[in-house]
Amino acid sequence: MTTEDRDLDPADDTVGTTDGSRSSSSPAAAGAAGTDGKKKRKHLPVWQETILLLGIALVLAVVIKALFVQAFYIPSESMEPGLVKDDRILVQKVSYWFGDGPERGDVVVFEDPGSWLSDSEQGEPTNAITSLMAKVGLYPTGGHLVKRVVGVAGDTITCCDKKGRISVNGKPLNEEAYVKREKGIDCRGPMTGNCSWSAGPVPDGQLFVMGDNRGHSADSSAHLCLPEQETDCTKNPYVPVDSVVGKVFVLLWPTDRFDWVGRPDAFADVPDPS
Rank of each mutant, 00 (worst) to 15 (best):
F72K: 08
D36I: 07
L138Q: 12
Q70W: 01
V136L: 08
T50H: 01
S118R: 13
I157G: 12
D112S: 06
V46M: 12
I51N: 12
S21I: 03
I157M: 11
E77D: 11
V146A: 13
G154Y: 00
H43R: 09
A32T: 08
P81H: 06
E77N: 15
A71Q: 11
H43I: 00
G101N: 06
G105P: 04
I89R: 02
L67Y: 10
G37M: 09
W47V: 12
D86L: 07
G37F: 10
H144C: 11
T130G: 01
D87M: 07
K147L: 02
K93D: 04
R41K: 14
S78K: 06
T156E: 15
V150T: 11
L53P: 00
A61Q: 09
L67E: 06
A134D: 06
G137W: 06
D36C: 02
A153K: 08
W47Q: 10
I56G: 10
V149Q: 03
S115P: 01
E121C: 05
A32N: 07
Y73C: 00
L117G: 09
E111K: 13
A134I: 00
K93Y: 03
I74L: 01
D106S: 05
L54I: 11
R41P: 14
R148V: 01
R22K: 12
P125G: 07
P75Y: 04
G142D: 09
V107T: 14
K38M: 12
K38S: 13
V69F: 14
T130D: 08
L117Y: 08
L67R: 11
S95H: 01
D112A: 07
K42I: 11
H144S: 15
D100Y: 09
D100F: 10
T35M: 07
G34P: 00
S95D: 10
